[in-house]
Design a protein around this nucleic acid. Structure first.
Lengths: 258, 258
DNA sequence: CCAAAGCAAGAGCACTGCTCTCGTTGTTGT
DNA sequence: ACAACAACGAGAGCAGTGCTCTTGCTTTGG
């Protein structure tokens, strides 16, 4: 077969459902994922069983392998869906009035809270993507795209803030400068390298806060978790250089005690 | 037969152990945990199999249940050991010259780097304790003690810095004040509540940085990871209020607090 | 219209966690 | 010293798992 034919066949396959067989395939695939997601939410990734999914769907377990070559492939599909779900939530929060107006730090916190809310509502799916990677050690290539959606939301938010009011760029040791410039060149060439590096650190730290809460590490340590997280997210936004007010007036008043 | 050959019958001088039976029990228990830890490090918690452990030790799988009532109990023992291992590393780093002298931010970073080093050297054990909680949703009571060792190291470090040079206490919204005071009352009544709250946030954020690195989230994003982490840890220390300058009191403040 | 490909179902393999029973062996009270 | 007792190891067995192979049946495309 010529490559152009293969390409045409693929594009055709993607654009429209060809026949009853293909329609059945996408329906069954969706049903499998739906039931798997239900079991995942109920008992966690460790308890997810192909046979149980097939049983619940009234089909033989061996038939399930026509749709997902292995259990890990099913989990990978769920991982992609989870990344997309939390990414969509972040993007939606960004588009919200509270996420697109007001102080930049508040917008940042708004998106952060949306991610946290999703994580608390879907702890097992969160654990699947931000907890220990349960399939192989290296994530499949399909996951890298959806995995970066949340990060890109924050990146866009910081870019908008930079273009509107600038960023308070903090200090950075010289040995980290080439790394920061490399990051900026790959992710956001129009932003100050120090801010890009700070954003990546804040990104990881944000998920540290969320993971500790979802995974129970804050048990009997943090009680007022909503307020604690919102404040921490605001501090994180400030660490990236986002300003507190509409006009750049960083009242950075650190008073020395004792 | 097979198994009793495996038991070492050397004359030992552990008079605390009552008889041969009790000695055999602690030895077998240790052997099981050792082999389990080996398999954990090799293939991860998901692949850890009681039967494989028993097989490798030359004993029947059913005999293993005399020592650990279930697979989850074995995992819990490994969790406790992992918490103790990383806690010990943190305490050791704190006792090191680099961890007990110099600027407070550098001491903080020293302990943080020690934790990170351990995590990178034992990714599966790290995932067991700071990744998704694989057994039940609530950690057994045995784990809460060892789990807090690392946190207490940072707490002691901040207390020493506070007593020597004070802390730069940042702003805190009023709605978070009662929560901060509750945290301080429970963890460190002698420290400013705002600093205790900031330390808890920094604690979670620190493990966010480590988790993202161990779990591969920094793949193709952060390259110079040593420098990146060290700098981020320093910034985290600064966010708690630790000072950059030379400490007035050279790190002889050994305050074992409990 | 017929070969080819896709599909569902069943049997089966190797493995798992866990339970039960059955001899054996070390401990302990008398 | 001896017997009752508790701890122990081994083996069989149960229910469940991921996954493969074979066997028919149905849809598809030349």
């Amino acid at each position: 077969m010529l490559f152009s034919d293969l390409l045409a066949w693929q594009t055709d396959r993607m654009s429209a459902i060809r026949g009853a067989r293909e329609r059945a395939r996408v329906e069954v695939t969706a049903a499998i994922k739906k039931e798997a997601r239900r079991q995942l939410a109920a008992d966690g990734a460790a308890k997810l069983s192909l046979r149980a999914v097939a049983r619940e769907l009234g089909m033989a377990s061996s038939a399930l392998y026509r749709y997902f070559p292995s259990r890990d492939d099913l989990l990978t599909a769920l991982i992609v869906d989870a990344y997309d779900a939390v990414g969509e939530r972040a993007e939606a929060a960004r588009a919200t009035p509270a996420g697109s107006t007001g102080p930049h730090t508040a917008r940042f916190a708004e998106v952060a809270c949306a991610v946290r809310d999703w994580a608390l509502a879907h702890p097992h799916e969160y654990a699947l993507i931000y907890g220990s990677p349960v399939p192989g050690y290296t994530a499949p290539q399909d996951t890298v795209g959806p995995a970066s959606r949340v990060g890109f939301v924050f990146l866009g938010l910081v870019r908008a803030a930079y273009l509107a009011d600038g960023l308070a760029v903090g200090r950075m040791p010289g040995e980290l400068r080439p790394e920061a410039e490399r990051m900026a060149a790959e992710l956001a060439p129009d932003l100050p390298p120090a801010s890009v590096a700070a954003l990546i650190a804040a990104w990881a730290q944000l998920f540290g806060l969320i993971s500790f809460e979802v995974f129970g590490q804050f048990h009997r340590v943090v009680e007022a978790r909503d307020a604690f997280f919102r404040h921490s997210a605001g501090e994180l936004a400030r660490s990236v250089g986002l300003s507190d007010g509409p006009a750049t007036g960083t009242g950075d008043t650190h008073d020395r005690t004792h």
